[in-house]
């Protein structure tokens, strides 16, 4: 039953919902209610939402959350691939994915491994899915998703944690794997061509003295460091709360621009406070999850510790801005 459920969820995460899925979905409590009556409209809405969520805002890949680079096909991905290879498991033919550590694939792999009693199933669950999927699924909630994806996230989270054995990680052990540091692509920081030299220069003499902008971006945009996945919507909400102009771009561009705008309008302290508040909300969310699922305690602690560090980091930046 659990493996069957994992397979269904794996498929639903892996691609947009298809017409052939509807007869099954209509029998699944929690998901059925989230679908509108008009079949064509429902599927179109879900396809659009799928692209908004996973195409534009939240990459559903382990390496984004676990790797120091926060990039796709990073060493963290190779770690998942090795596990698949050792277990003799391969993604089904014809599947479209950008990297093999897609949440849908990991769920399908777990289903197969549980079904055949593979030795790899516990490592996949304990060292991979339990570590990153809850953060991914909690982040999804912040994106105000379509009710279908909200319910799917709740159920997937519950199923992963339900499947997790007691005390999966010995006390005092950080569940994050050791991975190579992120490659340095940019060398000495320089503005890209076409960009005015505003970032560092604008921030110097204002708030962020002594820290390069690169460090700020690297910390806040890399979940492994920050303790959360900062979405474009999070940043937009922070900017909106301060009545800063709207920003469009990828996460890095958005964060850089919001920082610059906040500096320009002397609202950096307020911006940092918005981000601190977000971190605190996530600390609470991780605590709630731990309360309901004690087996997840070691993971919660690891992520919470990173959020605490981020709060410290933001407060230091704020102090520099005040100086």
């Amino acid at each position: 039953m659990i493996t069957h459920a994992l397979q269904l969820m794996g498929n639903y995460w892996l691609e947009e919902i298809q017409p052939e899925d509807l007869p099954v979905l209509k029998q699944l409590p929690g998901l059925a209610e989230a679908l509108s009556d008009d079949q064509a409209d429902a599927l179109t809405d879900l396809a659009v939402e799928y692209q908004r969520l996973f195409g534009f805002n939240l990459p559903p890949y382990e390496s984004v959350f676990i790797d120091p680079s926060a990039m796709l096909n990073a060493p963290a991905t190779a770690r998942v691939e090795r596990l698949y290879q050792q277990a003799g498991w391969a993604p089904p033919a014809g599947v479209r994915y950008a990297a093999p550590d897609h949440i849908g694939l990991e769920l399908l792999a777990l289903a197969d491994m549980l079904q055949t009693d593979m030795l790899a199933a516990p490592p996949l669950l304990i060292n991979h899915l339990a570590l990153w999927a809850p953060i991914f699924l909690l982040t999804l909630e912040r994106l105000d998703p379509h009710p279908f994806y909200a319910r799917l996230a709740e159920l997937t989270l519950a199923l992963i944690l339900e499947t997790l054995p007691d005390n999966p990680i010995p006390s005092g052990i950080d569940p994050f794997p050791s991975l190579p540091p992120a490659p340095v692509y940019r060398g000495t920081y320089q503005p890209a061509p076409g960009q005015p030299e505003l970032e560092v220069e604008a921030l110097k003499g204002q708030p962020i003295q002594g820290d390069s902008l690169r460090q700020v971006l690297d910390h806040l945009l890399i979940p492994r460091a920050a303790g959360l996945y900062l979405t474009r919507q999070d940043l937009a909400a922070a900017a909106l709360a301060l009545e800063l102009p709207g920003v469009v771009g990828d996460r890095e561009h958005t964060l850089k621009t919001v920082l610059q705008l906040a500096a320009q309008y002397e609202l950096l302290s307020e911006l940092f406070e918005q981000l601190v508040n977000l971190c605190q909300r996530e600390i609470s969310a991780y605590a709630d999850l731990e309360r309901d699922n004690p087996a997840w305690a070691a993971y919660a602690k690891a992520w919470q510790q990173r959020l605490e560090n981020t709060i410290q980091f933001l407060r230091q930046l704020d102090l520099q801005a005040m100086a």
Binding site: A5, Q7, L8, E20, D21, V24, Q27, P29, P92, V95
Partner: peptide
């Protein structure tokens, strides 16, 4: 949810694909 999964009366996407019956309704996976 799990109870409903256990009592499903329609083939899932995976089952459709495995049965090779998906020429008209090809599965996302296959």
């Amino acid at each position: 949810f799990l109870e409903a999964v256990a009592n499903l009366s329609s083939p899932t996407r995976l089952e459709l694909a495995q049965a090779g019956a998906a020429s008209q309704q090809q599965s996302a996976v296959h």
